[in-house]
Simulated scan of single mutants.
Amino acid sequence: MKDSEILEKIAKGDETALDYLYKKYYRMMTNLVLKNNGTEEEAKDVYQEALLAFWQKAISGKLVLTSKISTFLYSICLNQWRKELDRKSRLSNEEVDSEEFQGHDQNERYKIVMQCISELGDTCKRILTYYYFDGLNMTDIAEKLNFANTDTAKTKKYKCKKKLDSLIKARYTTTDFFD
């Protein structure tokens, strides 16, 4: 498929074109993260975020390609991975007293997260609970929730986590978690 055909199909909401892109450029995009001190899971997340950004821009009609789709996706992945490395660097440079993560404070943080998760829709609540607390992989979650495929489950998990992050950030400050 040509890039123009892919873009046209995605703009019309054809998810098969998105699946095609995912498979076609998966190795190239994930290798970018893997070769720059990332894990396979981080690489998948970065690529998933890049595809989501591409898809949102394409369906909005605001995407004008001035390069190949692969180049566009690569630049999104690169920028997202740089941001993630920067975030990791900042976190590693902060000193956090390990005792603060014990006992009562940890229980309070857990309660805050669980309260916010419970306010999300049923699907989000189930996805996040299955993934973060039950340790299920995306394939199992897709099967349990009758999603079309694992990619659908990944996209939904990403959106749910964004909602959860926004909800927590709107209600609590960093000091609520790191006194």
Rank of each mutant, 00 (worst) to 15 (best):
T123Y: 13
M1D: 07
K163L: 08
K35D: 10
R27Y: 05
K23Y: 01
G61M: 10
T174C: 11
E100I: 12
V46E: 03
A58H: 07
D105Q: 13
N107K: 15
A17E: 00
T129D: 14
E108C: 06
K125H: 13
L34T: 11
V64I: 14
N107W: 11
E108A: 09
T39Q: 03
F133S: 15
T174E: 11
T39A: 04
I76N: 00
T174F: 02
M29E: 01
Q115G: 15
E84N: 02
E100F: 12
T155Q: 12
R82D: 09
S70F: 01
D86G: 06
L167S: 11
L78H: 09
I59L: 02
L65M: 10
I127Y: 09
I141Q: 01
G135D: 08
D140H: 15
Y26A: 05
G38P: 00
V96L: 04
T175F: 08
R126Q: 15
Q80H: 13
L136V: 15
Y130T: 13
Y74F: 09
I112G: 09
L21V: 06
E108N: 12
T66L: 05
D86S: 10
Y20N: 10
I10R: 06
D3M: 09
K169D: 00
D134P: 00
I59K: 09
I69M: 01
F54R: 00
A58G: 05
D122Y: 02
S75K: 12
F54D: 00
Y130H: 14
N146R: 15
S118P: 09
F133H: 15
K57L: 13
F72Q: 02
L145P: 05
F72V: 10
K57G: 14
C77V: 04
K154M: 04
S98G: 06
I59G: 05
T175H: 09
S98Q: 12
D140L: 11
F147W: 13
T152S: 05
D165M: 10
N107M: 15
A53R: 11
E8Y: 05
D86A: 04
D165F: 03
K9A: 00
M138Y: 10
L136S: 14
L65I: 11
T174L: 05
K2I: 14
L18T: 00
D3H: 04
E41P: 01
I117H: 01
Y47D: 01
V96E: 11
E108S: 08
D122W: 03
K12D: 00
F72K: 04
Q48N: 12
E15V: 02
T30K: 04
D151N: 15
I6L: 02
F101A: 08
L63I: 13
A11I: 11
A170D: 07
K57T: 13
L7M: 08
R90I: 07
D176H: 11
K125C: 14
Y132G: 09
T175Y: 05
L63W: 10
A17G: 01
C160P: 02
E119W: 09
E143T: 03
N146L: 15
Y131M: 10
I168M: 07
I112V: 15
